[in-house]
Nucleic acid binder design. Sequence first.
DNA 1: CTGAAAGCGCTTACAG
DNA 2: CTGAAAGCGCTTACAG
Lengths: 344, 344
Amino acid sequence: MPVTMRDVAERAGVSIATVSFVVNNSKPVSAKTRERIEQAMLELGFQPNFVARALASRRTHIIALAYPAQEHPLDRSGLEFVLSAARRAKASHHHLVIWPIANEADELMALVGQRLVDGVVLMEVQLDDARVDALQACGLPFALIGRTRDPEGLAYVDIDFDATMEAALDHLQGLGHRNIVFACGSSDEPGYRLYGPFVRQESAYRRLMEERGLTPRILYTGPDAQAATQAAVDLEALAPEATAVLVGGEQIASGLMAGLRRRGRRIPEDISVMSTVASRATAATCFPTLSIVASPGVELGRLAVDALLTQLAGGPIPPPELRAGVVEPAESTGPAPDRQPEPA
Amino acid sequence: MPVTMRDVAERAGVSIATVSFVVNNSKPVSAKTRERIEQAMLELGFQPNFVARALASRRTHIIALAYPAQEHPLDRSGLEFVLSAARRAKASHHHLVIWPIANEADELMALVGQRLVDGVVLMEVQLDDARVDALQACGLPFALIGRTRDPEGLAYVDIDFDATMEAALDHLQGLGHRNIVFACGSSDEPGYRLYGPFVRQESAYRRLMEERGLTPRILYTGPDAQAATQAAVDLEALAPEATAVLVGGEQIASGLMAGLRRRGRRIPEDISVMSTVASRATAATCFPTLSIVASPGVELGRLAVDALLTQLAGGPIPPPELRAGVVEPAESTGPAPDRQPEPA
DNA sequence: CTGAAAGCGCTTACAG
DNA sequence: CTGAAAGCGCTTACAG
């Protein structure tokens, strides 16, 4: 029923090899022959069979996006990575399969062993990640969104957490804040110490605060919005004099903001709240709207696929790509209280 | 390099056909032979090649999820469908590819013509959907999340909008509300009249309100949270006496809520807000937390894949599956003002 | 520039 | 219960 190369070859009066050459533009073909073949393809509505091509060429043109859906429920900023990666794959004539698998090596290797994909993109990379070692051992090309503790020689893209934290602190200091707490997922959370984005943001925050002669204070909120709502109490105990909180993710930011408001703190009059690694969509739905450093998720999703495709094209491991977020001020940050013209 | 069936056959001293029989459990094999083969597979670490199997058997075990990412930016409730579908596919030994394509037939058919997938799941189905016709014409099995105007004979799963609206109105009426406005995406929005969830919710709302002797009033907010924030003004013009707003989606609900608060309306003291087709995650990050009819996205994602797999297994078009959401009261709804014990 | 042929790694009638 | 063989629809040296 479906039209094959054989059908095209017959109608054009050539061999199927020649048809293959023009379909893939893989060898020179005379103008008249090419034209006859193209005509035949048009008339028959020929489309090459992806699977047959994959088997013969040993290239499936399918890449996998491994995402630990259980461990890290995807928020909107995480979603941006996924959709951007899918779009990029499609633009480069690849398919993107989603592998919602646990954050360990066994399941990943079982899937890789099927030889369905040419390469894989890993999300939510841990500082020490068994999946990375396994992938290296089996020789399948891969790229990381995020990075391990020592990512030397790996293909990865990640948020530039140093620049991101610097931009965030600039914004807050520009408003006169000096007592700035950093809030992120709980240290009691399993695997917290292994989660790069929190660890890297925390250390950038500590370094920058000290460089600026300010006192770093960390609030561990727990893993989700609900826990963060409760953690508003802890904030007051930890740093009653704080005039601003910088939060490491949008879920926690919105939860913490709700907790503060519930306790009668006005935002931003009493305390400013800002989130890094956040999406504009979530920022707009907060009340007051949330000042953020917008996550470069769209860009990084695209770059991760690029890094993989470079390798698939026979290129070397591409250099890392780090991208800082963009500060987008909104209503949740304002002048530090001691600078305000009229007291409430 | 990779271990093939030939390798296993040699080591076990059998033909590759026999190996295939035990791998697929497709024909009876004597216990001793089976054991030798299984032993050989274990020793060699054999894993069948997915692509070769697909070519020979004409079944790729890959299904596509077509999602019009441009037209409908995915919110968290939309995301639930996707991840649930991917999990279900994986549990049934299928792969799920994401096709972020426009909501029209051409691109879909080009992808289908590659013969990469056994079937497709369509999201964001329009009342009149060219993709559905195209899929039917080409004979590829498919299932819909959502449904066309006349879905008779199609495999689909969808939200039970009648039951969902009924549950929502029950909740609000139970709190004493009688002036209940329904808010959803703008009628000026291109394609609005074609978008099933809004159309079906609106008509269910009208019918139920009239059945209950109440006056239906519709607020068209515009497509996103930002537009909905502006639309708070229109609400006051449209129905100054309204004590509750029922909103058709979480993005619009959070935007509208921000707009109301900005205008000094207290939620829920002055006006209650409730959203249908919403995720618990978003509800928890709103302030006040949002009362919702939780979207059955996880269930529907699973059921859609089930409906497709049933057909792939040779079964008939399965009957439709409609699921109502579950009411989850939170802070954004409260007693109607005229019932409140003490006035503000 | 073009073709005959082997081969990618499986599945599946068909025989026995 | 087991095997020899054809075939899935392409690609790719190899020859000419």
